[in-house]
Nucleic acid binder design. Structure first.
Lengths: 190, 190
DNA sequence: TTCCTTTCTTAAACAAGATTAAGATTTTTG
DNA sequence: CAAAAATCTTAATCTTGTTTAAGAAAGGAA
């Protein structure tokens, strides 16, 4: 049941069978329907969510009322709002399922205790945070060095299955332009 | 000599005097002049750099030959290229001093051994990486929800000293527009 | 002081992408 | 199946910011 997560752990650290048994009671599994909310703007984020399978988006609503997507998470990614969780502040973001998904929940309130019992997990999160931070800076690199059209071409080249998986208007939002512009781009070349 | 770093550690974790003594031999201190390079595009990044005082930028050169700044680091921030370091790949980035700076160097090659001897450091880096990742996503939030002019106004409001500290063309690059446009903005309102 | 380099400004012509306002198509639901 | 909701497309007009090409200040170094 938790196996996608334990497999992910083993990619970065080694856990004994005993350690895995210690960890299990700290986790919860949950199935969310398409469009179901995991966190809503204004709530304080209380957990880190691992996507066992499915697709989740994190977005905010601009002053003009449009939804701006900040992150997508698919199979084997964690998603949360660290700002809200670390400072126990109301979140600016909404985290919502884009398709039916199975998620594993690690609550903030028991995280410290878990890390004390299984210190290797601290290492695991340090490593995946390094990757996530690097990916985020890499995204800024992309935003700044390519035009909207170039970003779209790169992205659909790099993640063709993903482009099929989410509605186009969400992709446009994630890539930082309007759905109308994405339509225009797509009509330029097959 | 290492005190800015040890003070920074103590903000997030507790270290005993013995642990501090264990850590010291793993660190190196270095003074870099204005415009001196810490890492050059194409080299493999071999360390994480803590700015005890000064100002450092990380940038890449676009196809059109302009320098695009991805990150600034000032007093009490770490800077490195995790992608290059984690995968031992040539870096796309150049890390360079923007003013004379004192930096503390933690080499990648001895990091694992240090974390084994002082596991609390793993926790420290996990926490600051959470902050750095959140800050980076927050920056994407800003890029997507505000115009260039709004980003400049927000930034100079939030960090007025910093705006004085670096040349305007670097600020323009960091904020994602041209120096000419920054000049135009500035002439609009005193 | 004088030259040289770095940084900043101005303005005109231009391009990328937003906005607005339809309408067309697809998917979902009763 | 029919109706409603969600998604995608097209095209005209408008904005934000780029490009290009000067020249003006400011700061170092000899």
């Amino acid at each position: 049941m938790f196996s996608p997560l334990f497999q992910h752990f083993q990619k970065y650290i080694s856990l004994t069978a005993e350690e895995e048994e210690i960890i299990k009671p700290y986790l919860q599994i949950s199935t969310v329907a398409n469009k179901e909310y995991i966190l809503q703007q204004g709530q304080i984020c209380q957990a880190n969510y691992f996507i066992a399978n499915g697709c989740i988006r994190k977005y905010f609503t601009t002053d003009q009322g449009t939804e701006q997507i900040i992150q997508f998470a698919i199979d084997n990614w964690w998603i949360t709002d660290y700002t809200s969780m670390d400072f126990q502040q109301p979140s600016l973001y909404t985290i919502q399922a884009v398709e039916e998904s199975v998620i594993i929940v690690l609550k903030r309130s028991i995280e410290d205790e878990l890390f004390r019992k299984v210190p290797a997990l601290e290492r695991y999160f340090r490593i995946i945070l390094q990757r996530a931070f690097a990916a985020s800076l890499n995204r800024i690199h992309y935003i700044y060095s390519f035009s909207g059209e170039e970003r779209y071409r790169h992205f659909s080249n790099a993640f063709p299955e993903f482009v099929q998986r989410v509605p186009q208007y969400m992709l446009a939002s994630y890539l930082g332009f309007t759905p109308e512009f994405l339509s225009k781009i797509r009509s330029r070349k097959g």
